[in-house]
């Protein structure tokens, strides 16, 4: 057999798996997004009606809610994670850094569903926070913290702060120590060293991490469902509603394509922005 032939032999199983169980289902889903539901019957065709539903207030609102939550979470997580990563990288003595980092990402290894549930323990009416506030006499009545957007954002920020701390820490450690030394040597103070040297050099890593946050956050169903409740629905929640109640696969498919479109948009924005940075 030729070299190329043998090569194909090695690649074929993975390729068939990906094409058969990802590319083809995705194409079917895309076609489904243009189909229509009449009663319980599916009518294939090219019908943009599902996408037109974006104009409905309930669905437009879900897109908006998802975007608002995701952008807030991304911004807050970056702002929390950067100082944390920098303190671990630059202030914690080297031999304690591994431990410090491990502690900072320990809950990363709790199960996804369990992590959201454990925030309920903290935020519910009888939860840790309310009991503490009541105990200290800071509030007279328990606050409504769970089943709000605040709870969803908190749960997300918790997870993505850990993720971003890991990536930003790795970025900071990869930075040759001599860059900061050179800046100080030439008269820069701590803030100037950060502003002119460390921040610009870690920015590509930060943007990559922020993009990852955006992608994972906007597509997540579990956290808003457990912590946000049903007061306002995010896009993934609306998609799941279509699957459950009405089995409206065409609309669910169309909304999934919209979800993917939002991710693509974010990617294009990041890519453009990154390239600008390099010029």
């Amino acid at each position: 057999m030729s070299d190329t032939g043998r090569g194909w032999g090695f690649v074929a199983p993975a390729l068939l798996w990906t094409v058969g169980l990802f590319v083809v289902p995705f194409a079917v889903m895309a076609a489904m997004s243009l189909a229509r539901l009449e009663g319980r019957d599916l009518v294939w065709g090219v019908d943009w009606g599902n996408y037109a539903q974006l104009a409905k207030p309930q669905i437009a609102r879900a897109v908006l809610v998802s975007l608002e939550i995701t952008l807030t979470v991304t911004a807050v997580s970056v702002l929390l994670a950067y100082p944390l990563a920098a303190i671990i990288a630059f202030r914690v003595p080297p031999r304690w850094q591994r431990l410090a980092l491990l502690l900072a990402v320990l809950p990363f290894w709790t199960s996804y569903v369990v992590r959201s549930y454990s925030w309920l323990l903290v935020l519910s009416k009888q939860g840790v926070v309310n009991q503490a506030l009541l105990g200290l006499g800071l509030v007279a009545e328990p606050l409504t913290l769970a089943n709000t957007r605040f709870a969803t954002v908190t749960g997300f920020v918790h997870f993505f702060t850990m993720l971003l701390t890991l990536t930003i820490y790795a970025n900071l450690m990869q930075l040759p120590r001599n860059y900061a030394r050179a800046a100080q040597d030439l008269g820069a103070n701590g803030w100037q060293t950060f502003r002119h040297v460390i921040l610009p050099l870690t920015l590509p890593g930060v943007v990559t991490g922020a993009f990852l946050t955006f992608v994972l956050c906007i597509g997540d169903y579990v956290t808003p469902q457990i912590l946000g409740g049903n007061n306002e629905l995010s896009l993934p929640q609306v998609i799941m509603v279509q699957l459950g109640r009405r089995a409206d696969f065409p609309l669910a498919s169309a909304l999934s394509i919209v979800l993917m479109g939002l991710v693509m948009l974010a990617y294009l924005l990041c890519a453009r922005w990154l390239r600008l940075d390099r010029v």
Binding site: P176, N178, Y179, R181, A182, N189
Partner: peptide, 20 residues
């Protein structure tokens, strides 16, 4: 006296030129 306020400068082994 910290490096920033010393009358010395250094040429580093890896040059440490700011790539950006």
């Amino acid at each position: 006296v910290p490096p920033a306020r010393r009358p010395t400068t250094t040429v580093f082994q890896d040059y440490a030129l700011f790539p950006h």
